[in-house]
């Protein structure tokens, strides 16, 4: 059915002056696939994610995305209005800190409805209805629709952020440490939810995480980064159960076994 990938990355490099953000990253993401990017802090995971999602122009390299009308195009060759349109229709970005991705001054319903309004929805009743549906899907009680996000717990905020991103039915979601800062039981529920949404909606996703358990649960394939470079990649189980690169071996062995 699909003979080309959803996202194709070739030789992506970003330098912060003389320092390396990420170097020579190439991969392909196919529709319905979830790729995990793991590595320690400072290994260039977030830089890579910013470069992929047009938030930071890379120093070198090409990021191509399969748009619905034009096929594979270089995202940095698109005009700014097109880039913005892509960001709020085809793509979603889940920030590590939900406060970065949410509008904290307006109600939960408005947060979910914002993307709809940004792409031209002008019917209050229908916007509200959709917001309610999505709050329900991410297990937030729809009666809390008119509450301010500041009254929500950390886990709820993260779920609200996810609803806000998924409301326009994106095809590709970038997640930066989606479970960072949450306690384990809340993490587990969020992962469950994410896994269900990804399967139900046929989403593709790129998940940056330093938590190998999260990677194992969510990702089909894994890329291991160190010092800005991808040192190993492959199927998740393969990488985690039979790590080849010394750094991956170190990473896998440093997980505490309860």
């Amino acid at each position: 059915m699909n003979d080309h990938p959803l996202l194709r990355v070739n030789g992506l490099t970003h330098m912060y002056g003389a320092r390396v953000g990420c170097r020579d990253v190439s991969f392909e993401l196919w529709p319905g696939e979830v790729i995990g990017i793991v590595g320690e802090s400072g290994s260039g995971k977030s830089t890579l994610l910013s470069c992929l999602s047009t938030r930071q122009r890379p120093t070198a390299g090409v990021v191509e995305y399969d748009t619905t009308d034009q096929g594979l195009v270089d995202v940095y060759g698109l005009s700014e209005p097109r880039q913005r349109m892509l960001m709020r229709t085809d793509w979603g970005i889940v920030h590590q800190n939900p406060r970065d991705g949410l509008r904290m001054g307006v109600s939960a319903g408005a947060n979910v409805g914002e993307r709809l309004m940004a792409v031209g929805a002008r019917h209050y009743g229908r916007i509200r209805e959709q917001a309610g549906t999505w709050l329900d899907k991410v297990e937030i009680d729809p009666t809390r629709m008119d509450d301010q996000p500041a009254t929500f717990s950390g886990g709820m905020l993260q779920r609200l952020q996810i609803a806000r991103n998924l409301v326009t039915h994106p095809r590709l979601v970038f997640m930066d440490e989606p479970t960072g800062g949450l306690d384990v039981s809340v993490q587990a529920r969020l992962l469950d939810l994410l896994r269900r949404l990804v399967t139900d909606l046929g989403l593709s996703a790129i998940v940056v995480t330093h938590d190998l358990a999260v990677a194992r649960l969510l990702a089909h394939r894994l890329m291991v980064m160190k010092d800005g470079q991808v040192v190993e990649h492959g199927l998740t189980d393969q990488v985690l159960d039979d790590p080849h690169h010394p750094y991956t071996q170190l990473l896998v062995s440093s997980v505490l076994q309860p």
């Binding site: 913005r84 307006v106 109600s107 408005a110 409805g113 914002e114 309004m117 940004a118 002008r122 209050y124």
Partner: peptide, 22 residues
């Protein structure tokens, strides 16, 4: 300024939405 340049005004309705919701 960029929002004006791109006529990117959808977010303005968030304010009106918030009014009706409240």
């Amino acid at each position: 300024r960029k929002m004006h340049a791109l006529a990117d005004y959808g977010a303005m309705h968030v304010k009106l939405y918030e009014d009706i919701a409240r």
